[in-house]
Amino acid sequence: MKKRKVGGESRNGEKEVMRLGLAINRAEEKKSVEKRRSASRPKVFIIFFLTLFFLLTLLNTLPAQSRSTKKEAAVKPVAPTGQPAAPAKSSSSQKSNQAAKAPDNVRQTQPTSGVKGIPEATLKILKENRFLEEELKLAKNPQYYFVLNLKEKTLELRARGMVLKSWKASELRYSGKPVPLKVTTLTHKTALKPPERKVLNPAEAQAEETKKAEDKARQEENNKKKKEDKKDTEKTQTSATAATDTFEVEALEITDMPGSYELNFDDGLQIFVRSKSGFSERFRQARENLLWYTWYPVKHFLFRKSELKPRLILYFDNQRDAQGIYWAFIDGLKGIVWFP
């Protein structure tokens, strides 16, 4: 019995040890699993957020038609007259209408996204017609106007429909909400160092001139006294005549215009004109490049629901081009920005 008891005790002890051992093992396993879980948690979170981020961005990139009607309503259509257009019908009925009718009888008015069922060539013509309608309004007036072609990167000064002068940008960038295809007016220009007109004061100028003349006369007299030789006096006379040949013009010229500035328009559009010449300009462009590829996408993503102002940046290799634009773009100048 004892043996049995002993045996039984021993067996029981063994079992207890086994149980304990198993319990310890389980506890260790649990701990290790928890450790693993805790270690993998940040990774899982990162992966989860990244996938969410990508999904959201992809969702954001989908065309407006495939999204809900709320998103479509966010884009306010503007009629060519500048007044807000009538509220759009339901997208499905509009689509069916557009698909049903041939593109022959079409009158373009509102800016929204593309339309199915119409050939791309016809769409291009329709868009060009829309542009020509706007240009016609400007061509009727005697004042010259500008046309900015975003595809060709050209900025043209036109009068009566003919090109007076054109500039080709080496690089062009746009951000914010798209510019509606209608006439826009330049309200003001802003530059870090805007050119200043010199004011003539004839009385003061004359007094200065007489002073200068007197000083010169005194100097000449002194020279004459000091240098008795005739050759020397002749030399001074020739130098005086040479000094009169070199002239400095007191005027506001193209070279006085800034190379980097902003053009602000009545519809909120801002055009930044930049020229690549000079170290400071290169530094500025590098900074803008960095912002363009890092901050702007994030900003657009974060503020995607609010309408960001349309912005354009035009880069010119030649500083004189940028200066020429500043010269020609007077306040109140009208023009069209379009993407053919």
Partner: peptide, 27 residues
Amino acid sequence: AILALSWIHQLKLGAEWKTAWSFELDP
């Protein structure tokens, strides 16, 4: 992620600025 976002952003902007207009059918 920023590069991808930037790329997607450029594509989106391009599409928006190109198609930021339309018309209504006039019978």
